[in-house]
């Protein structure tokens, strides 16, 4: 019995090849097309690898305890990034305390309570979609107008954090809504059938079920805010801050410090910038790793 088993994947590969033999003119085109597809995919991956290798090469020699524990200085031998690292972490904390509850509240309202056919609900939805695509520098202008004029808070850490918070609202709202949408209606109906109110069902059943998705989306939003530069330039994140910042003091964050170091003429500062980039990437990678871990640990498949 000729029971030669073939996996269909090899057969599918043969499909492309033999069809080339079959239809003369399309063969070359199809081959070129596949070449183009592979090239496209490789470019992105190659760029990522080159980027990481470059950064590591430039930065590793400068990555030391001076960088981690000293304050910025005009002398590259003594320049460090400690106040910037502290400020970046503080900003993340402020965002978790402010923007996160607002974004999750918005998502819960839109997904669980709002009547979708109302014109103003549709306006809110369109507004969120659009806000997600507004250039970050525009949020900087918003900050500039209100820091300097309206609230008169001055260039302090809290203002910067609030601006970043507004900017990351749509990202978290959209991610949270998707997580809530993934919770099947049977969960809601089951709760309602037992006589629970809509709010009780949402609070006790729906939100806990959606937590992994919400957490993942929130961390992704947070990490984007941590890496943001442009809007903070506009609200006066200063460069040489030699003290650990408070909520209402001047501050600088890692991306701004990196930006300023890149602009300095001395070669050593380029290396320091690369080293600070490594620190920033390590912070972001650990946040994202945590998000992935959370998702894998708690994700339920419906």
């Amino acid at each position: 019995m000729n029971a030669a088993a073939r996996t269909a994947s090899t057969a599918a590969g043969a499909t492309v090849r033999s069809s080339l033999a079959g239809h003369g003119h399309s063969s070359v085109t199809a081959k070129l097309f596949l070449g183009y597809l592979l090239f496209s995919t490789v470019v992105g991956l190659a760029a990522l690898v080159t980027l990481l290798v470059t950064i590591l090469q430039d930065g590793l020699p400068y990555l030391d305890s001076v960088l981690l524990f000293n304050a910025p200085s005009a002398n590259p031998e003594r320049a460090g990034a400690r106040p910037a690292i502290v400020a970046s972490i503080m900003i993340a904390a402020v965002l978790m305390a402010t923007a996160l509850p607002v974004a999750i509240g918005t998502a819960v309202y839109l997904e669980e309570f709002a009547q979708r056919d109302r014109w103003w609900i549709r306006l809110v939805e369109l507004n969120i979609q659009n806000l997600a695509a507004v250039p970050s520098i525009i949020f900087g202008i918003l900050g500039l107008a209100f820091v300097v004029r309206g609230l008169n808070l001055g260039p302090v850490l809290l203002t910067g954090a609030l601006i970043l918070g507004l900017q990351m609202l749509p990202t978290i709202i959209i991610a949270t809504r998707e997580a809530l949408r993934a919770v099947p209606d049977s969960v809601r109906q089951g709760g309602m059938a037992l006589g629970a109110t809509r709010w009780q069902v949402v609070w006790r059943e729906v939100i806990p079920a959606a937590i992994p998705g919400v957490a993942t989306g929130s961390i992704l939003g947070l990490s984007r805010a941590i890496g943001e530069t442009a809007p903070l330039l506009m609200v006066g994140a200063a460069t040489f801050v030699s003290f650990n910042p408070g909520l209402l003091t001047q501050y600088t964050v890692l991306p701004i410090l990196i930006y300023q170091w890149i602009k300095l003429p001395q070669e050593a500062f380029q290396g320091l910038a690369a080293a600070a980039i490594i620190v920033l990437l390590v912070i972001l990678v650990s946040m994202n790793g945590f998000a992935i871990w959370l998702r894998n640990r708690y994700e339920r498949r419906w």
Binding site: M1, A5, T7, A8, A11, A12
Partner: peptide, 12 residues
Amino acid sequence: NDLIPSAAVDGT
């Protein structure tokens, strides 16, 4: 069935 990556056909 070729189009399903995991599928394998045996026999003739």
